[in-house]
């Protein structure tokens, strides 16, 4: 089993202009599947905090329920369409509740799900997904910023399916994953080299080494939050969010696999 940490903090720019925190993170563990999701609501969308919450809620449930199907399928295009349809359907429902167009809920999206010795994930928009494998930090999915710094793709964008990166693989040698919004990426991802900051390995290791019975008020959680509240947040005006899955490889037993087909190797992009 992986241990997890996820957190979002309101950016200084949002504090100044009175907008709420529009990043959201969520973790769900059920039936041998662990899912971590992160979404960053668009600054221009009036209800994007609700959109980001809807995305992480719906994606966690969908991935817990469909992990075996998605992991076994070789039809990446179908998985993208199904996942997006699920998210957009939730958007429409939430938009109706608030009496707004669904584009007012615009949000990016990224997730990682693990079960047994397999993982899979998806990413739409900016932010970064990375992992620590055999002691080496690697980027799984880099930001999609189009040409300009203030442009990206959202779940509600017409080219969301085209932009979505779908990935999967074996958990052998994988100590953990890290998901981050663009605000956090300003400190933890080098845009010039396309590499993750060394801090990512330390964060994954810290989460993996944490005691199993964690509470939101534990010393461990407080220290991670403090890092986000101060160092990471002070490097940007944007909201900052992060999601980490970590495990101690030396003591690792395979996760209880979800019932399903054998997962083929490879990834869909």
């Amino acid at each position: 089993m992986f241990k997890e940490f996820h957190y979002q903090v309101r950016g200084h720019g949002h504090l100044q202009d009175g907008t709420p925190v529009q990043d959201r993170t969520k973790y769900l563990s059920r039936g041998g599947v662990q899912v971590l999701c992160l979404a960053d609501g668009a600054g221009s969308a009036t209800h994007s905090q609700f959109g980001a919450q809807a995305v992480v809620d719906e994606a966690c449930t969908t991935l817990v329920n469909r992990f075996a199907d998605f992991a076994a399928s070789d039809d990446g295009a179908r998985i993208k369409v199904e996942l997006l349809e699920q998210l957009v359907s939730k958007f429409n429902q939430v938009a109706n509740q608030h009496g707004v167009e669904s584009r007012e809920l615009a949000s990016t999206f990224m997730c990682v799900a693990v079960s047994g010795e397999r993982f899979l994930g998806a990413h739409v928009g900016d932010g970064v997904v990375g992992y620590l494998k055999n002691g080496e930090l690697k980027v799984i999915s880099a930001p999609d910023n189009a040409e300009f710094a203030n442009q990206t793709t959202f779940v509600t964008s017409s080219r969301a399916a085209e932009s979505m990166r779908l990935f999967r693989g074996s958990l052998e040698g994988v100590a953990g994953f890290i998901l981050m919004s663009d605000g956090t990426a300003e400190s933890l991802f080098d845009a010039r080299t396309g590499r993750l900051a060394a801090a990512c390995a330390k964060l994954i290791a810290a989460v993996g080494a944490a005691p199993a019975d964690l509470s939101k008020t534990s010393k461990y959680t407080k220290r991670l939050r403090r890092l986000m509240d101060l160092k990471i947040r002070n490097a940007t005006k944007d909201d900052c969010s992060i999601g980490i899955l970590g495990r101690n490889l030396a003591r690792t037993r395979p996760n209880r696999p979800v019932v399903g087909h054998q997962v083929p190797r490879g990834s869909h992009r």
Partner: peptide
């Protein structure tokens, strides 16, 4: 938990978008 000692060298100072 493992010591969480993250210094400036562990973080990235990205250039401001122009």
């Amino acid at each position: 938990m493992a010591t969480l000692n993250i210094g400036a060298d562990d973080l990235v100072d990205n250039p401001t978008p122009r």
